[in-house]
Deep mutational scan, measured.
Amino acid sequence: GTLHLNGVTVKVPSLEKAIKAAKKFAKKYNLEVQVHGNTVHVH
């Protein structure tokens, strides 16, 4: 999967790991997580 954090793109081995990391990051910075196919966006 691919993880987008505020314009930074990170390749992640699995989508589940990407979503987990995204949710952790989003919670910390009070951001929103959106999943588009195998790409996770945090903004």
Rank of each mutant, 00 (worst) to 15 (best):
G1A: 15
G1K: 06
G1D: 08
G1N: 07
G1W: 14
T2V: 13
T2L: 14
T2D: 05
T2K: 08
T2A: 06
T2R: 07
T2S: 07
L3W: 04
L3Q: 04
L3S: 01
L3R: 01
L3Y: 00
L3H: 03
L3C: 11
L3N: 02
L3M: 07
H4Y: 12
H4N: 09
H4L: 12
H4P: 02
L5N: 01
L5R: 02
L5W: 15
L5E: 03
L5K: 03
L5I: 15
L5C: 15
N6A: 09
N6S: 08
N6E: 04
G7W: 12
G7A: 05
G7K: 07
G7M: 08
G7N: 09
G7P: 03
V8A: 06
V8L: 13
V8C: 14
V8G: 04
V8P: 03
V8H: 11
V8I: 14
V8D: 03
T9A: 11
T9R: 06
T9W: 13
T9H: 10
T9Y: 13
T9E: 09
V10Y: 15
V10Q: 04
V10K: 05
V10G: 02
K11P: 08
K11F: 13
K11M: 12
K11L: 13
K11D: 07
V12T: 07
V12E: 01
V12S: 03
V12K: 04
V12W: 13
P13Y: 10
P13V: 13
P13H: 12
P13S: 14
P13T: 12
S14C: 10
S14K: 04
S14W: 11
S14M: 07
S14T: 10
S14D: 13
L15Q: 00
L15H: 01
L15W: 07
L15I: 11
L15S: 01
L15V: 09
L15F: 07
L15D: 00
E16R: 10
E16A: 12
E16W: 10
E16L: 07
E16M: 09
E16V: 09
E16I: 12
E16D: 12
E16C: 14
K17N: 10
K17Y: 13
K17P: 03
K17W: 14
K17E: 13
K17M: 13
K17I: 13
A18R: 01
A18L: 12
A18Y: 05
A18F: 07
A18M: 06
A18T: 04
A18C: 14
A18N: 00
I19R: 00
I19L: 09
I19F: 03
I19K: 02
I19G: 00
I19C: 12
I19E: 01
I19P: 00
K20S: 08
K20T: 09
K20R: 10
K20V: 08
K20F: 04
K20D: 09
K20H: 09
K20P: 00
A21Y: 14
A21R: 07
A21D: 06
A21E: 08
A21L: 15
A22E: 00
A22W: 10
A22I: 15
A22R: 00
A22C: 13
A22Y: 06
A22D: 00
A22V: 15
A22F: 10
K23E: 10
K23M: 13
K23V: 10
K23Q: 12
K23N: 07
K23W: 09
K23S: 04
K24Y: 12
K24S: 06
K24T: 05
K24N: 06
K24Q: 09
K24C: 14
K24A: 13
K24L: 08
K24W: 12
F25N: 01
F25E: 00
F25C: 11
F25H: 04
F25A: 06
F25M: 07
F25D: 01
A26F: 07
A26M: 07
A26Y: 03
A26R: 01
K27V: 05
K27Y: 03
K27W: 05
K27E: 11
K27A: 11
K27M: 07
K27L: 07
K28I: 07
K28G: 02
K28D: 04
K28Q: 07
K28V: 05
Y29N: 05
Y29R: 00
Y29I: 05
Y29G: 01
Y29M: 03
Y29H: 11
Y29S: 00
Y29D: 00
N30C: 14
N30P: 04
N30S: 06
N30H: 11
N30E: 06
N30I: 06
N30A: 06
L31P: 00
L31S: 02
L31I: 07
L31A: 05
L31W: 08
L31K: 02
L31F: 08
E32D: 09
E32S: 12
E32K: 11
E32M: 11
E32F: 09
E32R: 06
E32Q: 13
V33R: 00
V33G: 00
V33S: 00
Q34L: 14
Q34I: 14
Q34Y: 14
Q34H: 15
Q34P: 01
Q34V: 14
V35E: 03
V35T: 02
H36E: 11
H36Y: 10
H36G: 03
H36M: 12
H36L: 13
G37Y: 05
G37S: 05
G37I: 07
G37R: 04
G37V: 07
G37T: 03
G37M: 06
G37P: 02
N38Q: 08
N38G: 05
N38W: 15
N38Y: 09
T39L: 09
T39M: 10
T39V: 13
T39C: 15
T39Y: 11
T39F: 10
T39Q: 12
T39R: 10
T39A: 10
T39P: 03
V40R: 00
V40K: 02
V40N: 01
H41K: 08
H41C: 15
H41G: 02
V42A: 04
V42W: 05
V42S: 02
V42K: 03
V42H: 04
V42G: 03
V42D: 00
V42R: 03
H43W: 14
H43E: 05
H43Y: 14
H43S: 12
H43G: 11
H43A: 08
H43N: 08
H43F: 14
